[in-house]
Computed example of a mutant assay.
Amino acid sequence: MVQYEWHKVQVFVAHGAYDPASITPLSEALQSAAEKHSRVVLDCAAVAFADSTFLNLLIGIHHTTDLRVVAPPAQLRRLLELTGADRVLKVQANLEDATA
């Protein structure tokens, strides 16, 4: 995971697979950022797999800060659609839209 600031917004770039065994570093980083910043952006373009653990993390962070999810790949987009989370979370096509 990579973290940086862009246009005064905290941006995280997630990559790889996320499940109960691998979610902890991302979870800790997002929770810490959510406590300090009014908006957090999560770039998901490089996420290879995400399960309900990842989805639960996104919803939890959404309740703490203005979370923007950027460029979810097909598998994650499908998970968001099937669960209705795409209607709750702010899903953006690109970083520019998410930080506007």
Rank of each mutant, 00 (worst) to 15 (best):
M1V: 13
V2G: 08
Q3V: 15
Q3F: 14
Q3E: 15
H7W: 14
V9T: 14
Q10W: 12
V13Y: 11
A14Y: 05
G16A: 09
D19W: 08
A21S: 13
S22F: 13
S22K: 10
I23N: 06
T24Q: 15
P25S: 12
P25R: 13
P25M: 14
P25F: 12
E28G: 12
A29T: 12
Q31R: 13
Q31S: 13
S32I: 12
A33F: 12
A34D: 09
E35A: 15
K36E: 15
S38V: 10
R39V: 09
V40E: 04
D43M: 07
D43R: 06
C44V: 07
A45E: 06
A45P: 01
A45W: 02
A46W: 07
A46D: 13
V47R: 01
A48K: 09
F49N: 04
F49C: 05
F49Y: 14
A50K: 02
A50D: 02
A50E: 04
D51H: 04
S52M: 10
F54I: 00
F54G: 01
L55Y: 08
L55C: 04
L57Y: 09
I59C: 05
I59P: 02
I59G: 06
G60K: 05
H62T: 08
H63G: 08
T64Q: 14
T64D: 12
L67N: 04
L67R: 03
R68L: 04
V70S: 02
V70F: 02
A74I: 15
Q75V: 02
Q75R: 05
R77H: 12
R78P: 01
R78I: 00
L79S: 04
L79P: 03
L80Y: 04
L80Q: 00
E81C: 08
L82F: 02
L82I: 14
G84C: 05
A85F: 05
R87A: 07
R87T: 09
L89Q: 02
K90P: 02
V91L: 04
V91W: 01
V91Q: 00
Q92Y: 10
Q92W: 04
A93I: 00
A93D: 03
L95P: 01
L95Q: 08
D97P: 00
A98W: 03
A98F: 06
T99L: 11
